[in-house]
Structures are given as C-alpha cells and as structure tokens.
Simulated assay, not measured.
Amino acid sequence: MLEICALASGSNGNCYYIGNEKDAVLIDAGISCKQILKRMAEKGLNPLKIKAAIISHEHSDHIRGARVLAKKLNIPIYLTAKTYIAAYKNMQPAYPRFFEPGMAISIGEFQIHSFLKNHDASEPCSFRVEYTGKNVGVFTDIGEPCENVVSHIGLCDAVFLESNYDEEMLRTGSYPYYLKQRVASSHGHLSNAQALKLLEENAGAHLKCVFLSHLSAENNTPELALATHQPLTSRFEVRLTSRYSPTDVFVL
C-alpha cells in the first residue's frame, strides 16, 4: 500500500506526502512545521512515520518549514549543496544531507530518484519516489519539459504535475511584463496546455491519477485546469490540489 497526499500546493507553499505502512517521506516543506503537522492530522497521517524531507530547490515556498520540521521530528533534510547555499540563512536546515542531481536516495524502503529540471533556481530537481514497483512523481516548477521529465513521467503510477497558468489569463492579467515573461519562460512554470501535452504524449499505460499542482491564484482557476485536462479522464483520474488545504489521501 502507498498513500499519497498534497498537504499544500501553490506559490504560498508546497509539501507532498508519500508513505507506506511503516515509513513516509515529504517532498518539499514550503509551509510551516505547524501547518504540515496540522494538515497531516486532518487526514489521519502519522508524523512519526516521516523519515526525511527532500527539498527540490531554494525558493521559500519549497523550503520554508524544513529547518523547524527537522528539529521537531528529528529527521534529516536532503537537498543539493547549491540549493543549501542559495537558501535564506534562516531557512537552511541545521544538519543537511547533500545529494547530487541524478542520485537515487534510499530512505527506508523508498528509492527517491532525483533529476534536474528547468526552473530559475540554483540547482532545481524533481523526484520520482519508488516503492515495490510503484512510482509517484512530484513534478512542479518546470518551465518546459526536458528529457528528464519526459523519461520519468512515463514510469509513474501517480504524479503531482504542475498546471500553473492559463496562457490567456497570464497574457491579459495584471502581472507586470517582466513577471509574465518569467512565468512563461523555459525556466518558469508549466501552463495548463503544456501539462496536457506532456501527459498526452508521455503518460504510461499504468498511470492511475494525476494531481494538478501549483495552480496560480492569479493566472488560473481550478475549473480551467480541470477543463483543459478533461480529454484525459478516460485514461486516468484527474484531481486538483489546493494551496489552502490537503487533498484526500490517494491509495496506490
């Protein structure tokens, strides 16, 4: 059995839970430790199972709660050395464990496969978490799909996939020009249409559920994101994540 849950997903904080009967890992800890534990409790998830948190990059919405979480639960925080150096000093975990992009990290019975992605950070990574032949991907903050993303998504049974913005909403919205350019760039975020194309062309036959993740509050709506991916619902389930509350726990 594998339980997965987006505890938070959005520009104000990201945290993804993946656990089995004995162990669990968190991918990113971008909300406070207090909020992580509160949202886990809401969904009946046991924090004592958590053996580590793995950080994708240094932006505060991915690392904000890591330092306190490590102390509270006495767990290691894994991140790259470049990510650690680029993070705000008050967010750097006290006893980091470094990995190199491309490495597989062994935590309990999990293998966490790390790989580089396109984003405007020092050394941004995404992850595929493997357990007893099941694979869960956490693929957010992606300007455009690179070969790494394409190859790993085809292995996934479930995936948290960025569907950040609607292209028309971004174009006509209130963001200043430089920020629109940043979001839509090859090192920014993935649009609804880009996420759809990635799935249409590369999702494996065993993919069971896609969690549309990291939705913009200004340049997207849940309704638009779901409508864009509606053509794929005959192949697999499509669910939304939220920046304000945890998703229901999905069991693989």
Results as ranks from 00 to 15, higher is better:
residue 123 E to L: 10
residue 66 A to P: 02
residue 147 E to M: 12
residue 151 S to A: 13
residue 153 I to R: 01
residue 82 K to A: 14
residue 93 P to H: 06
residue 136 V to Y: 10
residue 104 A to V: 15
residue 143 G to R: 00
residue 134 K to S: 11
residue 137 G to R: 07
residue 85 I to S: 13
residue 75 I to D: 00
residue 76 P to T: 00
residue 129 V to L: 12
residue 126 S to Q: 13
residue 87 A to R: 04
residue 133 G to I: 14
residue 119 H to A: 03
residue 87 A to L: 08
residue 61 D to R: 04
residue 95 Y to S: 11
residue 108 G to E: 09
residue 142 I to W: 01
residue 137 G to C: 13
residue 113 H to P: 00
residue 98 F to A: 15
residue 110 F to R: 08
residue 60 S to I: 12
residue 108 G to P: 10
residue 61 D to K: 05
residue 62 H to G: 02
residue 71 K to T: 07
residue 132 T to W: 08
residue 73 L to G: 00
residue 140 T to R: 01
residue 72 K to S: 10
residue 96 P to G: 04
residue 53 A to G: 07
residue 126 S to P: 06
residue 113 H to F: 09
residue 84 Y to S: 04
residue 81 A to M: 11
residue 147 E to A: 10
residue 102 G to F: 11
residue 142 I to P: 00
residue 135 N to T: 11
residue 122 S to N: 13
residue 147 E to P: 03
residue 70 A to N: 05
residue 144 E to P: 00
residue 62 H to T: 01
residue 87 A to V: 07
residue 125 C to Q: 06
residue 85 I to G: 02
residue 120 D to P: 01
residue 91 M to W: 12
residue 107 I to C: 04
residue 97 R to C: 08
residue 58 E to G: 04
residue 59 H to R: 14
residue 97 R to N: 05
residue 107 I to N: 04
residue 89 K to G: 08
residue 138 V to R: 07
residue 91 M to Q: 15
residue 133 G to K: 13
residue 81 A to S: 10
residue 78 Y to F: 15
residue 85 I to Q: 15
residue 81 A to L: 11
residue 114 S to Q: 02
